[in-house]
Design a protein around this nucleic acid. Sequence first.
RNA 1: GCCGAAGUGGCGGAAUUGGCAGACGCGCCGGAUUCAAAAUCCGGUUCCCGUUAAGGGAGUAUGGGUUCGAGUCCCAUCUUCGGUACCA
Length: 929
Amino acid sequence: MNCKPELIETHRYCAEVANELESRWQSAWSADNLNVIGNPGDADFDSSKPKFYCLDMFPYPSGAGLHVGHPVGYIGSDIISRFKRMQGFNVLHPMGWDAFGLPAEQYAIETGIHPAETTRKAIDTFRGQLQRIGFSYDWSREFATIDPEYYKWTQWIWLKAYSAWFDPTLKKARPITSLIEGLDCGEVKPTHGKWQDFSEDEKTLYINEQRLAYLGEQIVNWCPKLGTVLANEEVIDGLSERGGFPVVRRPLCQWMFRITSFADRLLEDLEDLDWPQSTLRMQAEWIGRSEGADIDFSIDGSDASIRVYTTRPDTLFGVTFIVLAPEHPIVNELIESPPEQCDGNALDDYVTQARNRADVDRMADAKGKSGVFSGLYATNPATGNCIPVWIADYVLMGYGHGAIMAVPAHDQRDHAFAEAHDIEIIEVVKSKTNETFSITDKCFSGKGVAVNSASEYISIEGLDTNEAMQKIIAWLVENNIGVAKVNYRLRDWLFSRQRYWGEPFPIVFDAKGNHYPVEESHLPVVLPNLENYTPAESEDPTPLLGKATDWLHTTAGEAGVDPELLCPDTPVTREANTMPGWAGSCWYEIRYCSPQCNDRFVASDAENYWMGNGVDLYIGGAEHAVLHLLYARFWHKMLFDLGEVSCNEPFQKLFHQGLLTSFSFQRTNKSLVPSDQVEERDEKFFEIATGEEVERVIAKMSKSLKNIVNPDDIISQYGADTLRLYEMYMGPLEASAPWNTRDIVGVHRFLQRVWRLCTDEHTGKMHASLQDAPDNTIERALATTIAKVTHDIPKLAYNTAIASMIEFVNTATSTSKLTADQLNQFVRLLAPFAPHIAQEIFAKLGGDGYIDVAEWPTFDPEKLIADKVELPVQIMGKVRGRVSVSTNASDEEIEKAALSDPNIRVLLETLTIKKIIIVPNKIINIVAN
RNA sequence: GCCGAAGUGGCGGAAUUGGCAGACGCGCCGGAUUCAAAAUCCGGUUCCCGUUAAGGGAGUAUGGGUUCGAGUCCCAUCUUCGGUACCA
């Protein structure tokens, strides 16, 4: 007898077999362009078929390569894409690279290697790793944001915004020429003065101020030593996170986007989107629309006044002080000539300190409620009372007018400040429900009834909050003190960076500082090479591209400025700032429709077909819930208004995949131990160095914790199909779950059993045992599985779909009565999840062509209905027995069956039946006592 | 602080509208097979009491409530994770 182990193992589904067949089919798919999809107008493209545009958030290709967390969302999108293809959809499923960004630039600073070189290399690594997982991307549509043919159009879109304004009457973006025409013919009035009286320079200035992309001053965190601007989170206590150098907050003139003009539409249009509730809410809160009033407080002994914004004008009688942000314009004047009661030096110190603190730090000592008295007094217009003006950093310059009317009785922060600085607290709103409430202990910020709210000027005494607000606003307007106002938290978008590795702006400046756009024919403005990438130490913010002097200084003609605007030999300076990382990701979903189009940013008919009502499914991490998704929506709306795209919203349905976490180990003092320094003994974990027991906890995958898992390793051990299946089987796609290498064997064994259903492991041949006549149990199990998988895939409930397939295979294995046709149907169900093994078995069964284009199995609903059903019988909600009845039995029959059950009969002997509840095909509950 | 999400066996997780809690997988236990082991196949596996069994009790973070019936609905509390803006 021959029992050499290697012979027995030869035809078992294992890593070698998986890897062999996976590479073989991947090559075949690629050679036959299986996943290349055409566009409307192409010879073999059927545009009468429904479309499904399934998009992944494209990755930033880091030098470290993929880890197993990256593919989670990609596997999810691949499954539904393959499913839709089998259901007869035209599926657009592309992939590309978000390739501008800081890490490559940092690396270039350290090594001198051009970011393009490292980025291209990283892209190759990523592409290779993704392809090995067997995704059905149409790689012919691949592009990177750093491709000049791509960023040419990023620059072009920016020019569109530069050449547009927001028409407040039509509530949409329009070409800037329509503004100029409107102003010239008097249809549009400037916000101040008469257009005819404007000088040419004033006119230009005014027009420039109206552009959707405009130059504005913004405060930035400048670190002179590092020669760079830092993000808020990179600044800790006024020092740079990297190196600990001083950081100053100072204004800088930069390109901005007028996203605030679109605030209303960005908010309203959220309603029609099929997005996670939590994300919709986060976007809405970020936009932060509020209704209230602007109110002017006159300063005593001066003609000037302070304008504040409030959401609660009804609390005007309770205003006992005013607070200005340290950055408020009046504060500068105070420092220069301090009033009598104001300590100018102390104020100067406070303002300097506050200005250089990040908002995060201001937030940190919320309890301190620091502030300085300004020496000024203002008048409360409702009471005529004289109230002090304070300066405190809990008021931010970036919101409202940088000044507030403080109502300590009804605002948490004002209350804390008043307590700290001994300022009067006057209650002006009484809660309708909580009568025993004491305003000296804490504030009441809800709505209620106005009290203490009458004076010789106006009374709102006894009015409900809403009525009170209306009445006081009417009075404010009548007396020219204030006006109703809608306010947004959203600020205009700062779009300049002083970096190298980003898209250059297609714009130049003349000697006087006037700006001129580069004409489309001269796009792209290509990023010049630099000798080295280290920023220069400097007191003034300087863009890195300023080093490329040859490129920087040119002539209008060479740069491509319209000769009618500027004589071609005029010397000009190029814009040396670059666009931020967000730029490329703001419109990539559009470009995928026709990535090779070179006469337009997208071919209209392709955009029309694929974008239709927007991307049908957009999968990506929740960390992009606000910024990326808001910015992309803004660009899309702008392009829609200007007639460049056909729909109003880019992403119809959005899904966030969960974070893939990993295990880590924690000492008793809560510090973490890298995973390679821990050993497992008897299901307990010990730190090797100390022998101390450590606790296994969930943590993010990180280099320092040594708990990163590389998909390549998993594939070489089990194959790509096992990796795909495991990542989807771990739990719901939207939930975070810890990677546990131990569990992978489960799905691998499942694939082995699938393999064994048709393959003799000794010979590698097809089983002769496949039946001809279908068995009823198997038929029903198969129908159930088809129903479950077909139902679960559109919900992206892959874990339960896989569980039902496992159940089917277990049934098929234990009965061994499967027919070739049943197996064929089953592998078609499996194909979206584990495409390679499914394809191999499909081919072995004599399937025609590729399984990817085979038909999705259907089932006869009749087969799902059993003729008998077992019902649990409860007495007072506890299961005491079970009866078997026919599915269509009447309530009387069921009741009779339940009461005649011996167990039930015994139990009921001492009880009186009050009621019997029968839930059809579910349960019987006898109410008795 | 505020907002959002979530707490179910030893572990990952199942559970249409309130209707048999623990599907499926891992791990563990037992059996078949084997000289033996691996692999495979079959069976068991929430906890407690019941020496086995029949059976009983408890149980979905905690404490209340609604209901014939609650993992699911309501109120309060605790814990964890994610987001963040002292937003007037």
